[in-house]
Design a protein around this nucleic acid. Structure first.
Lengths: 138, 138
DNA sequence: GACTTTACTTTGATAATCAAATAATCTATT
DNA sequence: AATAGATTATTTGATTATCAAAGTAAAGTC
């Protein structure tokens, strides 16, 4: 098996397991998977406009408009209207949204610690470096 | 920033970007995201029963029953009834299902090659090894 | 200024999802 | 072997997520 094939396999396996873990965590929470994903995107990457957020989430802006409406109603995100381009709006977490995101992120951190508990500090740093390079290429 | 925090960040970022890529690839195909995920799970991990497949996909068996019904109707998966446990059924790809999975997997392989084009052969092997360890811990 | 593009929303229809109830089968205990 | 309990899958009813396409408003282009 070539190194590309082997790498492809472990990358997909990691992705699948992460998705599965995320689903089980979210099912125990008060929010839907789509909602948590939206909060995560805004929490991890900061405020952004609808277009960017939709792309980031892999959904259409139409779907996102509905989702943001609900999250606004729940008090978790806010819309900010831009002066420089009045077509565009900036979506951001409210304080409560940030709190929920931080809670969810803490679960992610626990998972990461669990997953890498057998790795040395050097290995962790190598992994950060290599994955960082991959992420840049997307 | 601790190595755990840094690692958590790149892992989440990789997961997000993979999900986003997958969504854009699937939108251009004839099948839905849920359908492709089902085909991928069966193609990557082999035939399995409803319970395992639902867990793997992060959905309930009720949802999966509906999904499998559709895929059976489309001729992409088959149900096999077990002799040793007649409550359980085994779900597997048909030949056509395998063809579609292989096509989708080829896209994944292209992506992997693109993402790792700047890495050395040694780096790729290190990454395979480290990610393999993480995957085992899930 | 007219035309095109861009950003977002709305609408109408479909697909995905869950929780809970049901049915069939298996396992364990007595 | 009879009963009770657990497991596996399906069905049902309701909700949520989703898309494509059409609509609106603002910005960019020529």
């Amino acid at each position: 098996m070539s190194s590309h094939t082997a790498l492809n396999k472990v990358l997909i396996e990691f992705y699948d397991k992460m998705a599965s873990w995320e689903a089980s965590v979210v099912r125990e929470s008060d929010y839907s998977l789509a909602q948590v994903h939206t909060l995560e995107a805004l929490g991890n990457y900061g405020p952004m406009n609808m277009k960017s957020l939709a792309t980031q989430l892999g959904i259409t802006t139409g779907t996102l408009t509905v989702q943001v409406d609900k999250l606004v109603k729940l008090g978790l995100v806010q819309r900010f209207y831009r002066e420089d381009d009045r077509r565009s709006i900036t979506v951001a977490l409210t304080e409560e949204g940030q709190t929920i995101h931080q809670h969810h992120n803490a679960l992610h951190l626990s998972l990461t610690e669990e997953l890498t508990k057998e790795l040395s500090e050097d290995e962790r740093q190598v992994l950060v470096s290599l994955l960082g390079k991959l992420n840049q290429e997307f």
